Simulated assay, not measured.
Amino acid sequence: MPFWLDILAFLVKALVIVAAIGGLAILIVRLARSGEAPKDHEIRIKSINDRYDAMRDAIEAELVDKKQRKALIKARRKEAKARRNAPPGRRIFVLTFKGDLRATAVKALGREIDAVLMTARPGTDEVVVRIDSGGGTVTGYGLAAAELQRLRERKIPVTASVDQVAASGGYMMACAADRIVAAPFAVVGSIGVVASVPNVHKLLKKNAIEYEDITAGEFKRTVSVLGEITPAGREHFQDKLDAIHEAFKSLVAARRPGIDVARVATGDTWLAGDALGLGLVDEIVAGDELLFRARDSARLYEIRWEAKKTPLQQLTGGLGAAARRVADFALARLSGPAG
């Protein structure tokens, strides 16, 4: 008999959910017809200290009896009140940069730095930027490095933290910081420049297909995919790459004066341990450990510039979660007791 009651309960819940989904579907159709609101962004701030405290409290609450738990809650509330009334101490603002070839996250990085600059106190507060990037366009990563430089110009110390990779443009960004720390098996370096240009001119010529670049200016287009690459054009293109490489090396030398630039600016990469010996990084420590160590001496805040979700996106996201819960419930019932 209990088995049939379980089936009946499941069917009732399913009917309620289907009815709710139907109502939401009608609302979604109306929103879609009226048009979505334009996407916008906002700064989101999360206290990393509160996250640590919540984890600690949850674990401690399970390790004590009911009476001790009440005393613990009272003590934590007292601590929180004292913290609110205490004068503001050192604050560390944590930014995250997940890079791609075009450094598309640079716009969000700039907005996050705007928010920090309007709040941070020079000489007291700090910034940790967690970089994960294998590099990309010179223009994109040059801009990202310039954004970090804005913090240094206002006397706000910056630490670049690398857990996996900061190579090429990613390392250019890291060099804009006052200090670079890296996890033991992080990869850093790649102080070099590369440009890959496929050329099918010989294939076109073999098939009697003519292609011409009509330009004004001797060096308007020296290298192209379809046209013939002449020795003069190749040499000019190489000169441009060499000039960018020299600028990259100059930046590294200026930011890290103790480094042997000639030795490290070969385009090669190194694990963090070797990079430490070469002066490419200052300390071997993972990003989570870096923040964990600082939790008692500073207030840590994660700063993110994120896109707001439209009402339609919020509703569809809620429907997806509801559907997953229904599926999980049905699967649990069909699977029977575990053991």
Score class of each variant (00 low, 15 high):
Leu278Gly: 05
His201Asn: 14
Ala166Lys: 09
Gly110His: 13
Phe3Leu: 11
Ile259Leu: 12
Thr215Leu: 04
Lys70Gly: 06
Val18Thr: 12
Arg255Ile: 05
Leu31Gly: 13
Ile73Pro: 02
Thr310Tyr: 12
Gly35His: 11
Ser224Glu: 10
Pro38Trp: 12
Leu241Glu: 04
Lys206Thr: 08
Leu204Thr: 06
His236Thr: 02
Ile48Gly: 11
His245Ser: 05
Asp163Ser: 06
Asp213Leu: 09
Pro2Leu: 15
Asn49Phe: 04
Tyr52Glu: 14
Phe219Tyr: 06
Ala262Cys: 02
Val116Glu: 11
Asp163Pro: 05
Glu246Val: 00
Phe10Met: 15
Ala338Trp: 15
Leu312Ile: 08
Lys240Cys: 01
Lys13Ile: 09
Leu143Ala: 08
Glu42Arg: 14
Thr137Gly: 11
Thr96Val: 03
Cys175Ala: 12
Gly233Trp: 04
Leu315His: 07
Met118Arg: 12
Met172Glu: 12
Ala265Phe: 10
Gln314Glu: 11
Arg130Thr: 03
Lys67Phe: 02
Leu148Val: 04
Ala167Arg: 06
Val225Phe: 08
Arg154Glu: 01
Gly135Leu: 07
Phe97Asp: 07
Asp163Trp: 05
Leu151Phe: 06
Met55Leu: 06
Glu246Pro: 00
Gly267Lys: 03
Ala108Glu: 03
Arg295Val: 03
Ser224Cys: 04
Glu62Gly: 04
Leu11Lys: 13
Glu79Leu: 12
Arg69Ser: 02
Leu27Ala: 13
Cys175Asn: 15
Lys107Gly: 06
Met1Phe: 07
Gly99Gln: 07
Ile45Gly: 10
Ala82Trp: 02
Val165His: 01
Gly277Lys: 11
Lys98Asp: 04
Gly142Met: 01
Gly170Trp: 02
Ala294Gly: 09
Lys70Ser: 09
Cys175Trp: 04
Thr269Leu: 00
Leu109Glu: 13
Ala330Met: 11
Trp270Lys: 03
Gly279Asn: 05
Val252Leu: 11
Ser224Asp: 08
Ala80Asn: 09
Gly123Val: 10
Val127Lys: 10
Ala54Glu: 15
Thr316Met: 07
Val225Asp: 15
Arg263Asp: 04
Gly99Val: 00
Ala144Asn: 08
Gln68Tyr: 00
Ala286Gly: 05
Asp100Lys: 14
Val64Arg: 10
Val127Thr: 00
Thr119Trp: 06
Gly135Glu: 01
Ala298His: 08
Asp328Ile: 14
Ala160Asn: 03
Met118Ile: 03
Ala208Leu: 08
Glu212Val: 12
Ala327Arg: 14
Phe97Trp: 10
Ile303Pro: 01
Pro311Cys: 12
Leu276Asn: 09
Ala286Asp: 12
Trp305Lys: 07
Val12Lys: 15
Arg324Lys: 13
Ala182Cys: 02
Arg51Lys: 11
Phe329Asp: 15
His245Ile: 00
Lys206Ala: 09
Pro184Met: 06
Ala108Gln: 13
Ser335Arg: 14
Arg234Cys: 05
Leu8Ile: 14
Val188Asn: 03
Arg77His: 10
Ile229Gly: 01
Gly142Glu: 04
Ala332Cys: 05
Pro184Arg: 09
Val129Ser: 14
Ala321Phe: 06
Lys70Asp: 14
Gly217Lys: 08
Gln68Trp: 05
Lys13Tyr: 10
Ala338Arg: 15
Ala105Cys: 00
Glu235Met: 02
Val127Ser: 07
Arg77Trp: 11
